[in-house]
Amino acid sequence: MEFRTVGSIEEALACLADVGDEAQVVAGGTDVMIQHMRREINPSLFLYIGNLCEMEGLTKNGSHAIGALTTHRHLATDPLVVAAFPALAEAASTVGSWQTQEVGTLGGNLCNASPAADTVAPLLIADAQVELRRASGVRRLPLDEFLLGRRSTARLPDELLTAVTARPPGERCGETYLKLGRRSAMEVAIAGLAVRLTFDAVGNVESAKVAACAVAPRAYRAVEAESVLEGSRLEEGTVAEAGRALVDSATPIDDARASASYRRHVLPGLLVRAVATCRERAVEQR
């Protein structure tokens, strides 16, 4: 096999146009190298894009775009990201260890399409779109459509995920990401929940966005739970009802980390905590 380091996005796209079928794009390598060693993938080429600094960081140019090579550590600690996308920053800070956060990238996390990928849920509540470039052009796809299922995305072999655009929370809005694992860190989520609530002037929930991960083949928006919350004042009974809707929307599995029933069981409690945090943050913001 071959290891090819590219110096520009154009070079990467040319390479993918040429041998995209056999290439594995590598940035931090934290997922790719493990999958390669376990022989879950068998590419003939590692296309290394880790030197493309133009794909790093948050840019505010009309919309908010985050480069695909932005590391989890960057997401978790950059004041710009923390201010613009607090739930995403929280999520990134829970990915693996410091060592993996230093090199693991947002683009890698999305393209790996793990059901438990931490960054997906907070991006789903931010109406994120991914930017996919190829030698002949560019397309933008809602993240929701990009993720097809467990370890499966809509990226074509000649495309490179270059950036993610997302909408930061607006006025009277709070968001958070809660992750459940057995240990205090270094966990693949047993369940993860991202919630963004926007309140109207008198404190009613104007808009609710709820996304869950690790409780279905891919992270998803729990629209039924959202509609229960919308228009409410987060009364105890309403949040409980939203919790039940959230449980109904989940299709978790039993695995070595936790049982399906446990995953269902914890969702309502996580939702209660998440909406409380959202409310606090929305108030603080004012």
Binding site: F3, T5, V26, G29, T30, V32, M33, I34, F46, Y48, G50, R73, S97, W98, Q99, T100, E102, V103
Partner: peptide, 14 residues
């Protein structure tokens, strides 16, 4: 920056 060298692609260190 600290990295896990066991999953760091060697040629990426070029």
């Amino acid at each position: 920056k600290p990295v896990d060298s066991c999953i760091y692609p060697a040629p990426a260190a070029a």
